[in-house]
Amino acid sequence: MSSMETQPYIRTIEWEMLDKRKFIPLSIASSFSIRCMLYPFTVIKTRLQVQRHHSVYNGTFDAFRKTFANEGFAGLYRGFWVSAFQLVSGVAYITTYETVRHVLQNCGVQDSRVRALAGGGGASLVGQTIIVPFDVISQHLMVLGQVELRPGKGTRRLNPLRIQYESIPRRRIALEIIKEVYKQDGVRGFYRGYFASICTYVPNSALWWSFYHFYQEQLVKVLPPSLCPLLLMQSLSATLGGVTTTVLTNPLDCVRARYQIQRVSSLPETVQALWAEERWGIFTKGLSARLVSSITFSFMVVLGYESVKRLSINDELKPLVRW
């Protein structure tokens, strides 16, 4: 065994080891950069999930091609600036995650997977409470301009809120959506699908962080630091965790997207309608787009997250950090 492997090093950088003045701004910058790169996949995933069968697109590549052809590059970034406000929830998310893990560790919980499971679930609960109103608005923006093929009836543009957006300046479309949502449902409309989001994202987040630590523990046994950089191993662990979680939670995400956008009266009714239309297809509906997004997102998020933690660690601990 090499001396590099026997030397002590910090594999998991904990909350109390960080200089928060560096960590928080660097985390925001990292999150914004990743969101810019991956947002088109979110748009495509949402459009695939809300269509009925293959009435609009035949798959992920077809959705990209038709969106770009019909709406140009801007179509892939519909609702981006509204969605960008989610950076606020991102700070709350990561702060909650690290705080819960820290508290559990102080309470004697040593299993990193259990702490990650609780931290991820708690972080998502806080994050979703902040994010759902922005999610509702951005999802309506995502489907504007989407063309649905109707056999024997030609085509039509999907517009669940019936807004005459063609005659509205682009900078005002989000404002019109806000006004229409409030007009139809009041403040409650901005939290439409909140329970569905909680049911989707809390287990998704809890499982993602738990699998991240599980795969990390397994990979470190076969990929010691002398064979694989620690940061690369962590990014691979995140990717494997993202794939596992995405496959397990895809039906929940389909229900959430359909309920928030198509204004079905209740969550059980949404589940029944989706099952009647798709049957076992709910396990694969939009899955390819989610997998591409999840693989890229998981790899990039942890690459950024763990790099930011290394850059933000207190000076006296830097000699114990490995890249």
Rank of each mutant, 00 (worst) to 15 (best):
L104Q: 13
A206F: 05
T239S: 03
L231G: 03
T270A: 15
I282A: 04
I34C: 13
L227F: 12
E180P: 01
E148P: 01
D135M: 14
W323C: 10
Q7L: 09
F214I: 15
T296L: 09
V136M: 00
L141K: 08
T244L: 15
V292F: 10
D315T: 12
I198Y: 14
I163T: 02
M37S: 09
Y194W: 12
R263E: 07
V255M: 12
W275D: 15
W15C: 12
V43Q: 06
V88H: 12
V103M: 13
M17R: 03
A118F: 05
A276K: 13
Y77F: 11
Y165A: 02
W209N: 09
M233Q: 14
N70L: 13
G72F: 06
L232K: 05
L248M: 11
I94W: 07
L26D: 01
R258D: 11
F190A: 02
T42V: 15
D253I: 07
Q146S: 13
S226N: 07
L303Y: 05
C254L: 08
R150E: 11
F64A: 00
E269L: 09
P133V: 00
F134W: 15
S266V: 08
C36W: 12
S112M: 10
V88P: 09
K153A: 12
K22M: 00
A289I: 00
Y201R: 15
G152T: 07
I34D: 05
E166A: 04
E166Q: 09
S30Y: 01
S2H: 10
E306M: 00
I261K: 00
L223N: 07
C107I: 11
V43D: 01
I10A: 09
L207G: 05
G79S: 10
Y182P: 00
C228P: 04
K179G: 01
R171Q: 08
F73W: 14
T96R: 08
L311E: 01
L227D: 13
Y93H: 10
S167C: 03
V243T: 08
E16L: 06
V264Y: 09
T129H: 08
I13R: 01
I295G: 07
V88W: 05
G72V: 09
Y97D: 09
G193D: 01
I173V: 06
N70Q: 08
